[in-house]
Computed example of a mutant assay.
Amino acid sequence: MHLASHKIALSLLFAMCTMPAFAEEDTTLPTAGKLTGSFAVVNKYIYRGGVENDDVALQAGLEYALQSGVSVGYWGSTLDYDPSDDSEGKDHGFEHDFYVAYGNEINQNWSYKVQGTAYYYQDGGTVYGEDGDKRKTTAFDVLGELAYKDLTLAASVMLADASFANAGDVYLSAAYSYALPQNFMLNTSVGTSIYNSSRDDSIIETKNDVVFSEARMGVSKEIANTGATASLDYVVGGKDRVGEDFDDQVVFGLNFSF
């Protein structure tokens, strides 16, 4: 999937679902004053049903937890397309996500998090449409999460128009994980996108205001004494904002945390 139907398959999720890459982040609150990081290799990068990289993707992240539940972080991934108009034959790119989050526990079962994220695409620049329309590839959104034990409900809202999204696009999601024997984890998720068609132009066209984006079911397992976690997810594809179907996908991953 390319930029017009990519990262903002923003959806309404009513179910128990997923093991998140960036959308698949651990909802455990970080310890104040601690720097954590990760490096992952996946056979493909699928985000909200759309293909960001149909080849092997390298992904990495860093997060520093400050006092009082505040954290700042970075996450990045290789892409198999160039998001700019001026691609000059390039068939690859890089996504950089910078975020600030605040989270805390309500009690031993309930927790919450609010996060603002800036999405920057290396050499992305500006995309031009007809009638003088133009949009930056850079995007900004805000995310809210509410977790009860292993169930997490989330909603994100796009704050400004971008080359692949309209301001006001919403993605609602639900994720559920369950411990299995032999230290395996079952990870499930489901999602639906709500698109703001009132801001359509020659670059963004919306034919479906509300669509099912994806559902996931998978397993993961920590590899003893390595700091690595192996995962396998089956992704059921939904639709994008113009009504095109996403293919079902199988995603293998190996994530190293420190």
Rank of each mutant, 00 (worst) to 15 (best):
F184P: 06
T226H: 08
H92D: 15
A32D: 08
L10H: 04
T28S: 15
Y178T: 13
L13Y: 04
Y112H: 10
L12P: 02
N43P: 09
P20Q: 12
N53I: 02
S38R: 13
L143Y: 03
S177E: 12
D161T: 03
G218C: 03
V70K: 00
F140T: 04
F258R: 09
A15R: 01
S198I: 00
A60D: 05
A174N: 07
A9Q: 07
A179T: 11
E63S: 14
F258K: 12
A160G: 07
A179Q: 14
S77F: 04
A224C: 06
D82L: 02
D26Q: 08
V250C: 01
L172E: 03
A165F: 01
A139D: 06
S197D: 15
G103R: 10
R241N: 09
R241E: 03
T27R: 10
L146D: 02
R241A: 14
R216E: 12
Y74I: 11
V210C: 13
L186C: 12
S111Y: 04
F246S: 05
D80H: 02
W110Y: 15
E88L: 10
E88M: 11
A154E: 13
K34T: 15
N104T: 10
T229K: 15
D86K: 10
S193N: 05
V211P: 00
F256I: 11
V211E: 10
V251E: 01
S38A: 13
D150A: 13
F258Y: 10
S71V: 12
S156D: 06
T27V: 15
D161G: 04
S202N: 13
G50Q: 00
E205H: 14
A174F: 05
G76P: 05
S84K: 07
Y119W: 09
S71C: 13
A32K: 12
A21P: 08
K149Y: 07
Q182W: 14
D123H: 09
K34I: 15
N187K: 15
A175N: 12
G227H: 04
N43T: 11
E130T: 10
A147S: 15
I46S: 01
V114Y: 08
N208I: 03
L29A: 14
Y234P: 06
L79Y: 01
T137N: 05
I203E: 02
Q115T: 13
S38K: 14
G124M: 06
M16G: 15
A40W: 04
M16A: 15
D201Q: 04
I194P: 01
T78P: 02
F164V: 01
D133M: 06
V142Y: 03
A101Q: 13
G89V: 00
K34R: 09
T126W: 01
Y64T: 14
L146Q: 05
A139N: 04
F256L: 14
Y178R: 10
D97K: 13
V114E: 02
V157N: 07
M19L: 14
G218T: 03
Y171P: 00
L3R: 01
G144S: 06
S202D: 13
L159K: 06
S163V: 01
F39M: 10
D91N: 14
F212L: 14
K44M: 11
E52I: 00
G243Y: 09
A175Q: 11
L12E: 04
S193V: 02
